[in-house]
Amino acid sequence: MDFTLIFENIGIYFTGLQNTVVLVSISLVLGLLLAVPLAVLLNYGNNSIRLPIRAYIYFFRGTPLLVQMFLVYYGFGQFDLIKDSLLWPFFKEAYFCALFAFTLNTGAYTAEILRGAIKATNHGEIEAAMAAGMSKLLMIRRIILPSAFRRALPAYSNEIIFMLHGSALASVITIVDITGAARIINSRYYSPYEAFVTAAVFYMTLTFIIVFLVKKLEVRWFAHLQPQSNNPAIEAPP
């Protein structure tokens, strides 16, 4: 085992780290922005809206991420219609293709997580909102979504981690992410163990940070469910 070659080439791993973090963050944010309205429409929209959304979710949950990425990257490049269009400058870039596939993929999974969380909203909360005279939109914004987000958080933290690990596939379409960096080092020095163990450490560190942040958020969002031992307002009677 020879880890000096890793330290000599650590720069390439940091380039990879940067690419992984940017790719995953942007696709998670865009995916979430896409998923919220879709999840709401899945619960409250009519059939003509629900059907295409269901088809979209089914396609992205029903096919491997690798296949989706190959479709976007190599598949789209096959059609002159796309190659001559205004979109081509975007789809020409491997980075954009990965972002595009990742966003739609995580969007589909997140929409499904949120759909379930919205469906599980306590009837009492909805009845109370209606009794208070809230319009449907206001009710969704103030009551249903905040409560659904809380319920969805544990499942969504899984999705974040899956997305991080799924992003390793970006390396097959020439992007130098953490895995891409490991593959370059492996191919240059034929040291698969050192190269990929280093990548594993990077991924584990990122996962640790994600788990830590989600935990923080959980404490904050579920504050009302914590035992209120330190609350001076509720003191045991003397």
Partner: peptide
């Protein structure tokens, strides 16, 4: 430098203009 797993993928991207 763009690195590919196979020569065939490299040909695809050359013809795609990538």
């Amino acid at each position: 430098i763009k690195r590919y797993g196979t020569q065939d993928e490299a040909y695809l991207d050359l013809t795609a203009g990538r």
